[in-house]
């Protein structure tokens, strides 16, 4: 699959669900180069999912600019595809049909569609289940189908909203490694949301910390580690400890600590 990443430019993006609801997040700034993997961590309720839905074109922003390769995002597109926390597969379709449904929507001819679907199914190691009923698959396998369903569109940006949080630890570790390596192999951008600090360290090129109500991006930590990353690696451990410290500081903001943290990390938006 030939794919490449996308240039992301999010400037002063704000959102509220309605004029009566509180501001979900306020003046979010994110910039990323093609092929970069961003992981956003933050406590639940700070607006991470909302942000991702906006980037996917599934929700309109209230204010601000959202440019992907200098084009304003207004609607969903095969160039930026979202994968959700639950697989949400269509139970009346086989694995193959589930994976190919996006191509079907796009009006692909049958033969090319079959080839590309088979390739996507291979990519997530589900060849043996191509014609299975998705209701017969385990949670991890279902999430792999959802991953293939997103990848088959050859997106330049894959948005992931806590995609592994419902899986057992073993499956989660395997998928974390696979998704990162597939993204690197294809050269696409990842923008992933999680509340799992380990996951952020294992998958990110840059970890963005989102905090507050309304939510804001308070820190941007580059994660320069070699692949494949192992949980037990001392460098991974120390990055994790650092990120954990930043995360806790962000939760109870004291001005002094915050300035100290800013000295070691880079504030978003100045890239």
């Amino acid at each position: 699959m030939a794919a490449r990443g996308v240039n992301i430019r999010i400037e002063n993006l704000s959102h509220r669900y309605s004029s009566k609801s509180p501001v979900t997040f306020d003046r979010v700034n994110i910039a990323a180069e093609p092929g970069e993997s961003l992981v956003i961590i933050g406590r639940s309720g700070c607006g991470k999912s909302t942000l991702l839905h906006i980037v996917a074109g599934l929700l309109p922003p209230t204010n601000g600019t959202l440019l992907l390769d200098n084009v304003q995002v207004r609607a969903p597109s095969s160039r930026w595809v979202m994968m959700f926390q639950a697989p949400h597969l269509f139970p009346w379709m086989t694995v193959t049909r589930n994976v190919g449904i996006g191509l079907h929507f796009a009006g692909w001819p049958k033969k090319e569609m079959q080839e590309r679907v088979a390739e996507a199914i291979r990519l997530v190691n589900l060849e043996d289940y191509a014609n299975s009923n998705v209701q017969d698959l385990s949670g991890g396998q279902q999430q792999r189908v959802a991953l293939a369903r997103s990848l088959v569109m050859e997106p330049e940006l894959l948005l992931l909203d806590e995609p592994f949080s419902a899986l057992d630890a073993f499956t989660r570790t395997a998928l974390q490694r696979d998704v990162r390596s597939i993204a690197k192999q294809l050269g696409i951008n990842l923008m992933m949301v999680t509340h799992d600090i380990d996951e952020a360290v294992l998958m990110a090129d840059r970890a963005l910390v989102m905090a507050g109500s309304p939510g804001r991006i308070v820190h941007d930590l580059p994660v320069d580690l070699d692949d494949p990353r192992e949980r037990e690696d001392p460098l991974v451990q120390s990055t994790r400890a650092h990120l954990m410290q930043i995360f806790q500081d962000a939760a109870k903001p004291s001005p002094i600590r915050r300035n100290a943290a800013e000295a070691t990390t880079r504030l978003v938006g100045i890239t």
């Binding site: 599934l58 597109s77 959700f84 639950a86 949400h88 929507f105």
Partner: peptide, 18 residues
Amino acid sequence: VDPAWFKVSRNLGAKPWH
């Protein structure tokens, strides 16, 4: 019907007919 199915299909480019 699970509302997420509509979100997923919109995300994958479904038109109203689809």
